[in-house]
Amino acid sequence: MMPFQTLAEFRSLLDRLPTPDAAALAGAGARNGQLTKPPGALGRLEQVALWLAGWQGTDKPHAGRPQIVIFAGNHGVTAQGVSAFPPEVTVQMVANFAHGGAAINQLAKAFGAKLDVVPLELERPTADFTQGPAMTEAEVVAALRAGYGAVDPEADLFVAGEMGIGNTTVAAALAAALYGGTGWAGRGTGVDDAGLGRKEAAVAAGLARHAAVLGDPLEVLRCLGGRELAAMTGAILAARMHRVPVILDGFVVCAAAAVLERSVPGALDHCIAGHQSAEGAHPRLLERLGKEPLLSLGLRLGEGSGAALAIGVVQGAVACHSGMATFAEAGVAAGS
């Protein structure tokens, strides 16, 4: 049963977030200290394995049932000329996902991930946030609920991806509203200097119009966000409530996740950053979230692609931690 019907009820979930299993974390730490390797020799893989153990509640974490969900939405702010592509590309790419032709389809297959696609009223874009709130309360709640309900509680890893022409502008507006400062807008799908200027102007106009709500992260999401970003916010919270570890993708996903972190510090403790994208402000946003990326490959595709690649790193960490022999099991003398 969906645990919220209103924005107020969604807020109340943030007051009762699950925490890592201390006993499992201690057990995984003890096991890690007994494996046939010098202490710390596997670097961040060891940290990843312990992080998973705490959330999964076992000293031998697993990563054989990852889930990727792509959320798609359209944005009224595209009327400001902020994208190099028209809004109908969102619909066309959703069809491409359905037919298995996108990069994320190939990455999901490569790492054994279940892939779901959730289009969110693509025929009805959000309102242009430079002119008024992007969504009504009913609309943002519907998107949050769509995201929350898309998470498989039996998954052992979760990746949220996105598709939505104009959504790097929306993400820039969210980041600016949540953290302040300027320079959050980037090239996105490859806009020229004039297009970048229009993005920056749209973000500034949105912040000015909605100045009264900038202290409330969920109202920021309603007024400046989009359906697919709200759905990802809901999905990341659902993963926390189900104790499913999350791998964060790029700038847009991190902006959606930041709504939770700004609402309750520590709300993203169940999340790890899969990669650092080529979108200019992503490293800055990761720093605000306190997340060090696992990969940095110059990606700027979206779709959850960087996080999907990081599934392989997480699976490698699990394979070593849960599959390696201890010194006693292997009959190898431990170091002093």
Rank of each mutant, 00 (worst) to 15 (best):
M232P: 11
V140N: 13
I311E: 06
M93E: 14
A267R: 02
F111V: 15
V259C: 02
L268W: 03
G304H: 08
A8G: 15
G100Y: 13
D249P: 03
G302E: 07
A95M: 11
C271K: 07
F97Y: 06
N96A: 15
A328N: 07
A175Y: 00
R145T: 13
T136Y: 08
M2P: 13
L285I: 03
A204M: 03
K109A: 15
Q131H: 12
R240A: 13
G304L: 02
R187D: 00
I70E: 12
G195Y: 02
R227G: 11
A328E: 15
E219C: 03
L207H: 01
A127T: 15
S83I: 04
V253P: 02
G280A: 15
H62D: 14
G316H: 10
R227M: 06
G161R: 13
A26T: 12
A202R: 00
G147N: 08
Y148A: 13
V314A: 01
T169Y: 01
L17D: 01
G57R: 08
L14S: 14
G335D: 14
R284I: 04
E303P: 13
W55S: 13
S12C: 13
A138F: 08
Q131W: 07
Q67I: 12
K114P: 07
L295M: 09
A98K: 11
A267K: 08
K291N: 14
L157T: 04
E139R: 04
L289R: 09
Q34W: 12
R227L: 09
Q80T: 10
G27R: 02
A134I: 03
P265G: 04
V259S: 03
D128V: 04
L17C: 10
P20M: 00
A310I: 10
D59P: 15
E123F: 08
F111I: 09
R240N: 09
D249C: 03
M135I: 05
L144M: 05
Q5H: 14
K109S: 14
A49Q: 08
A26P: 09
T130R: 02
F85R: 05
A98W: 12
M241D: 10
A79P: 04
E9W: 01
F251H: 08
G164S: 02
G101D: 04
L218P: 09
G112I: 04
G188D: 02
V253A: 05
E154V: 13
L221D: 00
F97H: 06
I165F: 00
V252T: 01
G161I: 14
S336F: 14
Q47P: 07
A281H: 09
L268F: 05
M93N: 12
E123Y: 07
L13M: 09
G161T: 08
G274S: 10
D192W: 11
F85P: 04
A155N: 06
H275R: 09
G100I: 06
A172N: 00
R222W: 14
M241P: 10
A238Q: 11
G54I: 10
G215M: 01
A185N: 05
V118A: 07
D193Y: 00
G298S: 06
A143S: 13
M241Q: 15
P125M: 10
G290R: 04
T169Q: 03
T169H: 01
T233R: 07
A102C: 09
L42E: 12
A138K: 12
S83M: 09
L309D: 10
A95Q: 14
A24R: 08
T78V: 14
M241W: 02
G306Q: 12
A171E: 05
L286P: 03
G64F: 11
Q80I: 02
